[in-house]
């Protein structure tokens, strides 16, 4: 399984470069203009990351995070998930920046190769900011009644979170 992880990134880059050599002109120019776009996107999220990471860091320093984690630990053990990821599990569908902030703090406390670190990464990598996406898309077309959208989306998110624990336990 590890070989997939090692090969995927170089393989994807090579495939794109080969396609680029044949199908487009001024590939390096394309690259730099895309990179500039990436930079602008990041610049736009810097303020929100500063706000959110600081809040998470304060929350952690005060001991409130431990209390939250501890009070959710029965749920965690019921779902066979490491209890450290429970606060992240709540934040993930609500705020993308908040999830990055929480994941960053979690990885710095427990390390990326700990069980909690791995499950947290798989969980974040396999889900989206559900509430934001739903609001954005329906808001754009003026739909007021979203019927069972959130039910389906949140069931999927919840199952994904439980599956990420199972997947990490099976594969590592």
């Amino acid at each position: 399984m590890n070989i997939i992880g090692s090969y995927a990134v170089p393989l994807v880059i090579s495939a794109i470069l080969i396609a680029g050599l044949f199908r487009t002109n001024g590939m390096f120019g394309q690259f730099t203009s895309g990179a500039l776009d990436g930079m602008k996107v990041l610049m736009r999220i810097v303020p929100s990351l500063v706000g959110l990471i600081t809040a998470v860091e304060m929350f952690k320093a005060s001991g409130a995070l431990d209390v939250l984690t501890f009070s959710l630990s029965p749920v965690a053990s019921f779902l066979h998930l490491p209890k450290e990821i429970m606060p992240l599990m709540i934040l993930r569908p609500i705020s993308g920046g908040g999830a990055v902030a929480m994941l960053d703090r979690l990885l710095s406390s427990y390390g990326p190769n700990s069980l909690a670190g791995r499950v947290a990464c798989v969980m974040c990598g396999s889900s989206e900011t559900t509430f934001y996406t739903t609001t954005l898309y329906y808001g754009a077309v003026g739909v007021k009644k979203i019927r069972h959208t959130l039910v389906a989306a949140l069931i999927a998110d919840f199952c994904g979170m439980v599956i990420s624990g199972i997947a990490v336990n099976l594969l590592f």
């Binding site: 396609a19 680029g20 199908r23 487009t24 590939m27 394309q30 690259f31 895309g34 990179a35 776009d37």
Partner: peptide, 15 residues
């Protein structure tokens, strides 16, 4: 972010 956005720009424009 920069590197990946650059690569993906190539992916987009080369179809």
């Amino acid at each position: 972010m920069c590197f990946w956005s650059g690569i993906m720009k190539i992916a987009e424009s080369s179809g």
